[in-house]
Design a protein around this nucleic acid. Sequence first.
DNA 1: TATTCCCTGTGC
DNA 2: GCACAGGGAATA
Length: 260
Amino acid sequence: MPELPEVEYAARRLRRALRGRTIVHLRAHHPSQRRTLGAAVVRRVAGKMVRAVERRGKSQLVHLSDGATLVVHFRMNGDWDFGRSGTALAAHARVSFDLDDGKRVSLVDSRALCTVRWYAPDAPPVFKLGPEPEDPALVPSALRAALQRKRGPIKPALLDQSVVAGVGNIYAAEACWHARISPRAPANKLSLPRVARLLDGLRSALADGHTNAARYHKGVREVPFNVYDREGEPCNRCGRMIRRITQAGRSTYFCAGCQR
DNA sequence: TATTCCCTGTGC
DNA sequence: GCACAGGGAATA
């Protein structure tokens, strides 16, 4: 379930496994991954050491010792599986890294929508991303300026990665709920106080997400969402029924009682 | 700015 | 069967 908190957590685990290690063997196991990881790339990556792993928005960047970069995107349901080389591959393993310490990291993704791209040292990836949600430079007036360039309703606007990096469908809806703003409110007409509330709402929703990402692998009970996937259930704030609508082809959950 | 497509799995 | 799934690039 990879949105920003999950990707942040995944990138940390990946960093722990890869940093300083040499990739003995990179393999693409599915045709959709072989399109971006051809034989030449796979050959070139072999023997390179991992200098650093970082996250930008929902992308994970693996910086290699020859200056090349691998960019991993989980899309809808990618995740890492950590195991040992030579053992059976995890189900739905799409790409795997065999490391010089005998361990193997696999990208598992049942839908095979995940992407792994290789960038040459002289042509590094360029991201059209807005500020990270935690960036101190992201103040209400900056968010408002970004939103004023947008047409259409606020909730789909929050999914635009050039507005704020890493906001996905769940947290866009949760942020609107926290801020008591209708997902249908025009993005470019939100007042500064409402934008400030939205920013606070986004940060609290993501904070819950970070708690959950840490709990996910420990079997600890997770913090429930307030609106996402709760159609027909009562709102935690006003008790009215949560509704589901479609915006820009995706589900939006909200409470028409207290989100105006 | 909305739809279509990429894939496969799940739940009704 | 069919609708739907958290993303994003490519389209009209």
